[in-house]
Design a protein around this nucleic acid. Structure first.
Lengths: 211, 211, 211, 211
DNA sequence: TATGAATGAGTTTTCATTCAT
DNA sequence: GATGAATGAAAACTCATTCAT
């Protein structure tokens, strides 16, 4: 009858982990919200940690996928490609608001699981970003930059809206699940790409005119 | 006799809340680390939540102070002032690494306390940032931008290193408490200010030559 | 396996709440006496208060039942019926000595639960007593009395032996669980009914002779 | 400055013991209400139990005194005297509502202190009641009764209003501190004395006429 | 006489987990 | 697959008491 027990558990746990944090959520809370018996969690995920790990996996599988989908645009230029990657990440994260916030928060805790899982996905993420940025520098699209620092900043920009819920709702008066906001915000990220790593159009114009 | 009981509790709790998260830290852990009796926590802070609130207060009092100290440079130009504010925040956060990470993580949880405390400090923060940015736009130092979006991005950049510990240690091979890193990272923030909100020097040069 | 866990908890709690009072009894005491795990109390009754509420319910369900069983004698006359009700209450309370004393003590504390539970049962109790007394006055069996005041006094008489344990044991040298005492005491209550609310037999005789 | 520290502690403890019960009241609650330092309670009463004992003493000293004051009327007849004693007890208890309820509740708990204190005062109480009742029987004012049983019933009637707060407020719509109620209720007690232990006037009239 | 700090033992409650069904 | 009962460990919190000042 209930063949989706596993899914409802995951959905409930994502929501509750996001709202109360991992430690702040009890297995009974999750089972209660999912309307299943708490023992099912042990059945499907071995224990509470297994459930969190599952959430991590769900997130990062898709996260890397989105980067890869964006990276496919590499032949259209580094700038286009980087923007595409940023856009993909942004929309993916907006569509998985709770999961994203939960992951971003939990990775700031220096635990065993986090370290293990991160080392895998971080390597992949770094691989693609470095490729794009190095390509951009080769083709003179980008200024000379430190790829890792640039990646860190880009991640900062992309994650900000999910970690600063209050700022969004109380200052910008935006609910972060409004697609309108995602569309507006990604423009700001484009501006950053253009302004900070791309050789500026004025610079190019100036150089063209004077040399 | 021991008049510093309160302080050692706070210090221990900041460290442990940061490492294990608020819910992941027990009162006994804190008391153990601080080498005091667990009942003292109730005595001084009423309960565990009170201790967290105290950490919030400590952080935001200083945070706003740093913004104010930077804002005093407003007469030297909006760009100088904004950089000064960013620098102050950055160094303050680097000097209070654990506390900062703890606060940045906890404010992403939408709890009662967070909402109350945030509404106070967010207003102050917004006030100063808007003042600087509007001033910059008036004096033509800055392009026409949306002050609140710019602030959000700046916060994103400033907070990133504290939330992505793994990235720092495993990709950049930096321990975030190395002052060298703070000095390097703030330069990147300057670049962002110059590249994204300041009218670019090439732009100014180009415009000067051609018109 | 042990399907009577709930019952043994209730039995143990009634005994201990009676002896030491509600606040004077710890969950551990109860679990110890019942030879079950303390967590079962939370499992079955949510918390310590829930257990007390359960005791209240047990008591008043039966209490009202006894009144109803006595009220069935209404057609045999108000005096007979009132005595039957009193007798039923008395023997029920004697058979549930600990529970009765516990309840009588706890209802004197003006708490939330007490108020809620009492409002339900008090209404029922009042309904039956008023019916009997009004009937008695209609048929001239009873003098003209205030039903509510009479009920209060009757309750006072019926409850006294349970609240004054010392008086019983040290003055009357009776253990209140001796059935002999209940049988003797109910006679005194009958006398009160005859002497205070029934038109006295001498009165009737006197009136019969002289008018 | 505050020479009444002891008194305010007692007053606060009477109120709180009444509302929450002895075990339900903490020393800090009392100190808080009395606006004194908790350590004062240990200073003046040795410990929490000492404070309760003090309350018992206050109550029973006065209680016995009131009985003695009523007993002084013995020469005016047993009935008058017994009514006077009942009246004194009733008004004393009404004037010390909280204390009375607290005492009546706590004596139903079979503790060490209670037993010790009770044995003293119970003896005195019994002495006076037995004297009056025996006198009444000698002078033919009273029927032949068991003095101890009568005393128990009288105590039941006198204590009822203090133990059934809910009945008073929700059924009789009386706040038990309204003096009007005390005056009305004592009349009911007189009726009981007249109806149950005094040879009835009709009885006397009947006997006078017929023999 | 009065107090603030501190403590250790004890309280209720929560929780992840196990297990027989 | 799924459940209700049960548990042991640990959590947060309470509290009477002590003590130096």
């Amino acid at each position: 009858m209930k063949k989706d027990t596993k899914e409802v558990i995951v959905a409930a746990s994502i929501h509750l982990f996001n709202v109360n944090g991992f430690h702040g959520t009890s297995i009974r809370d999750i089972a209660g919200k999912a309307k299943v018996n708490p023992a099912n969690i042990a059945y499907y995920f071995e224990n509470k940690h297994g459930l969190l790990e599952h959430c991590f996996t769900i997130f990062f599988e898709r996260y890397v996928e989105e980067i890869e989908k964006g990276f496919a645009f590499i032949e259209q230029g580094a700038s286009v490609c980087l923007k595409k990657i940023a856009e993909n990440i942004m929309f993916f994260q907006f569509e998985n608001l709770h999961l994203t916030r939960l992951i971003l928060r939990e990775i700031s805790i220096d635990s065993q699981i986090v370290r293990e899982i991160m080392s895998t996905y971080l390597t992949k993420e770094r691989f693609y970003f470095n490729r794009v940025i190095e390509r951009g520098m080769k083709t003179k699209e980008f200024c000379h930059v430190n790829a890792d620092y640039i990646t860190l900043q880009l991640k900062g920009l992309l994650n900000m809206p999910f970690l600063n819920t209050h700022y969004l709702s109380e200052v910008l008066h935006v609910l972060p699940n409004e697609k309108y906001f995602a569309e507006k915000y990604i423009k700001e990220v484009y501006k950053w790409i253009d302004g900070v790593i791309c050789k500026n159009e004025y610079e190019r114009a100036y150089l063209a005119v004077n040399y």
